[in-house]
Design a binder for these strands. Sequence first.
DNA 1: AATTGCCATATAAAAATGGTATGGCGCTTT
DNA 2: AAAGCGCCATACCATTTTTATATGGCAATT
Lengths: 296, 296
Amino acid sequence: MNFKQLEYFAAVAEAKSISGAARELDVAQPPISRQLALLEDELGVTLFLRTNKGVELTEAGRRLYEQSRQMFQSLRTMADSVRDVAAGARGRLKLGVIYSDVQIATHLLKKYHEKYPQVELYVRMGAPDDLLDDLGRRELHALFLRSQSGRSCGLRERVLGEDPLELVMCPETDPAPGRDAIPIQALRDVPMCLLRSDDLWGYGRDLLEECRRAGFVPNVACHCYDTPMELQMVQAGFGVGFLPKSIVAAHPGSPVYTKPVLEFSARSYPILVWEDDPYQSGCVRRFLELAGACGL
Amino acid sequence: MNFKQLEYFAAVAEAKSISGAARELDVAQPPISRQLALLEDELGVTLFLRTNKGVELTEAGRRLYEQSRQMFQSLRTMADSVRDVAAGARGRLKLGVIYSDVQIATHLLKKYHEKYPQVELYVRMGAPDDLLDDLGRRELHALFLRSQSGRSCGLRERVLGEDPLELVMCPETDPAPGRDAIPIQALRDVPMCLLRSDDLWGYGRDLLEECRRAGFVPNVACHCYDTPMELQMVQAGFGVGFLPKSIVAAHPGSPVYTKPVLEFSARSYPILVWEDDPYQSGCVRRFLELAGACGL
DNA sequence: AATTGCCATATAAAAATGGTATGGCGCTTT
DNA sequence: AAAGCGCCATACCATTTTTATATGGCAATT
């Protein structure tokens, strides 16, 4: 059995006539006659009753006709969906996001999903190192991280924006109430909650350096493994934090707020990171394109 | 696109190698290479990444593979179901049954359904003339009737059994209590509920004739249009009826019972009636075969 | 450097498919 | 009643498609 036979068969069924189907398909009558006979032979079933003025489906033929219509339908669907996958309009996109990038990631994904609604999105939040491991294992296609990475060897990245790093505090722990910016000297002896700086991702490393340069040993009250925890500690009054301004700005109801450090401006850069693979799947390519178009 | 290309494609996907698939399918390698290229051209999509030690599905190729498996599955299903329809193991069987034949019909259908469980059964009860009309309109395939028909011109029939016609009564209307059979003379003046005898289907016609031969005019208290109604009238004490013994026997809890008429034995013959069509659908043929094997 | 295994291409043989001519059959028309 | 018409089936040749053989390029291994 092959498509041509089924196609001929369906045309004959619709025209209720072999010669009629031949006219419809723009081929001669005998080929259709023959293919029909071959199909009947292969199935071992009579599909049409030949009358003097055309043909008529048997019960079995009716069944084949119904099924073959579904067949053609799913054939078209199949071809279309394969093209969609290749074009990146369908498929699976798996992304990793660090807490600091939630805003920018969701914003970008919203635009992406509006443009490619058929792509299934998988998103996972986690620590940068864990996400990078998954990226290496090809379990994620791209990551929303912050620049400063020392690990992006063999990886491609794209800067998506910039974000000033500022001190985070609540009214009780404000080292300089009433002032819009905080002089570095005001941080002497102030307890700080910072991301652990023994790896490469902590935002506070340069701030600590700056404090030492200013002549005092900073007081790190708490080392946090992740940003959400740091925010919670700051909110609980443990001390001041040092985080991208946008994270705090995104929580308008929260009692915490930020102020810049006078004489010290640091920035963190949200970046998109991915493997440099020339055979990247379509939806990943489209996503990276969109990120490129939306990037800074 | 055609089946061969899909088949080759699936084999390559499974072997992760063109030459491997060629060995598997027992064809040379170049044809597969070429059909694959044709398929990719038609879809406008790269389905495999060619490496130095085989090939690897792309995302789009993976999609096509998944879909093509379903495709092959439904293809097999389709062919099988068409053969089933032709063999009579699948399809639709529409039957008409008169009340008197309910027992024999259900019994036969039970056996049929055990043998051909995939056939959808449609059964309808009605008056003989209505059923015959539907048979003529091809809305029913066969009917369970009783012989005596004058209308079966052009129809084929098969006797399925025989059934003595007996008087039906309840204790209050018994014309000869204490006796096993009732002499015809005992029916003089006894009110009777009979199927209307102005058409050809009434069971009582010959009984009325016999009464007249015995020298009295029978007292027909009620003319019934159908058997269930006649039974109800008899049960309500309107008079005695005259019906196939098996109908009453099938209602063991009922107060009505039957007795034969002495010196007059009439029988009715359950028959199966159908159109004489050489292109009868498979399930009808199988059903008639089974009826033939089970018939008297 | 040679060998091996892979895929792609070119070409000739084989197979399948399509077109033309023709015949049988039943119905309608003259 | 015979001729004409439209239908499907068959026979046969032409064309197209598909296959097999031979060969080349390429990368990895020996």
